[in-house]
Design a protein around this nucleic acid. Structure first.
Lengths: 204, 204
DNA sequence: CGCGGAGCTGAGCAAGCGCTTAGAGCATCC
DNA sequence: GGATGCTCTAAGCGCTTGCTCAGCTCCGCG
């Protein structure tokens, strides 16, 4: 799976058409108002159907959130794992990971907002599953940083803390990114890759 | 006003006692479940009174959120402004700003969570007021970074983008910080101050 | 002692919520 | 050409929500 395929528009492979329209509507609504402030009537309305039609495709409103959260987290993990497993120095791989991850959070900041900030609304078992995926993402970043330290490429105060900070920095892009602002997703990705390399004092 | 006074426990000066208990209860509930998922019955219950009693002290549930958000933002702004106006090099002032700001978000991560992540639930006029305060906080950080660049102490790719990243990094601490985790607020503050100085390539 | 106001409660209202049900429309199959 | 199954709607059920209100208690004051 290429980075481009991963960063491409999501939801394309959800069928039938009505189910896909519902997910897209739910992402927009959840991102704008938050999960709890969004009504099933609103989601159905945005998707162009009656409230009852939602329940033919999804058992509950929470299942919609779960679907969105799962797809988003799998996508994030795929991006980070691919960067970790790619060729090149630790600095190159870390820069790629941050650039791609940040670009995705900027480009798909509505999806990102739901994925990163609404997971508290998930049912307990779904929440546990998502948390496991998040831990894997964290491990991917930590692994690259550890490689860099081992190879003498990086100099960090603490591997775990630095990992947390890098991840946090990238994730929070979904919160503040504004598509009408000055910066394009590509520019934010490049800027953040630079800043992160500075944080680990990469020797290029 | 000293940094210690600013970082001290909040809500101490709210009277009467019942009103203070309500704010504290609301902070806990909003932080745990989010504003929209919290009921006025829950808040009143945590404060040890009947649902109706809430409305003697606050006109609406939103006013409670506004109170919390306003106090938190004023406190944040006071911390950052004090660091900006303090004596010392730009590096020292930036490190102080980050250390204090991050420590507060870790120590008061429940309040921080509400302050930073629930402002979308504010009424329009309240929201506008809070956004203005946030802009001032951003300006404080930007001002320190600009000073450092002008003095030749810092080397950053872009002042505005770096400001955004530093602020974002600090704010997001409220989301992930766990008081049962390995790191104390002091440690996170010190780590983050270090990482931020690396981001601006401070020459000490 | 009587009074008044502040703080609070129990009961409950109107509105909106997630979700269900009965049945319509419309293809596809025997 | 009738039966079947899928998608969808109109209507609405049962419940919870934010908030209100009449009335209680308590306490300081004259």
């Amino acid at each position: 799976m290429s980075v481009e395929a991963v960063t491409g528009e999501a939801w394309g492979d959800i069928t039938p058409d009505a189910a896909r329209r519902l997910v897209i509507a739910a992402v927009q609504a959840f991102a704008e108002r938050g999960y709890h402030a969004t009504t099933t009537r609103d989601i159905a309305g945005r998707a162009g159907m009656s409230p009852a039609a939602l329940y033919i495709h999804y058992k509950t409103k929470e299942e919609l959130l779960y679907q969105i959260s799962k797809v988003g987290h799998l996508r994030s993990l795929a991006m980070l794992a691919e960067a970790r497993d790619s060729e090149g120095s630790a600095a190159e791989r870390l820069a790629t990971a941050v650039r791609v991850f940040v670009r995705w959070h900027a480009e798909h900041h509505t999806t990102g907002r739901v994925v990163q900030y609404e997971l508290g609304a998930l049912a307990e078992e779904h929440h546990a599953e998502i948390v496991a995926l998040r831990r894997q993402s964290e491990d991917a970043i930590r692994s690259i940083i550890k490689d860099g330290v081992t190879a003498g490429e990086f100099d960090v105060p603490e591997i775990s803390g630095t990992t947390l900070a890098v991840l946090s920095l990238c994730i929070d892009v979904a919160r503040w990114f504004n598509p009408l602002g000055r910066r394009t997703p590509d520019e934010v990705g490049a800027l953040y890759a630079d800043l992160v390399l500075r944080m680990v004092r990469a020797t290029d």
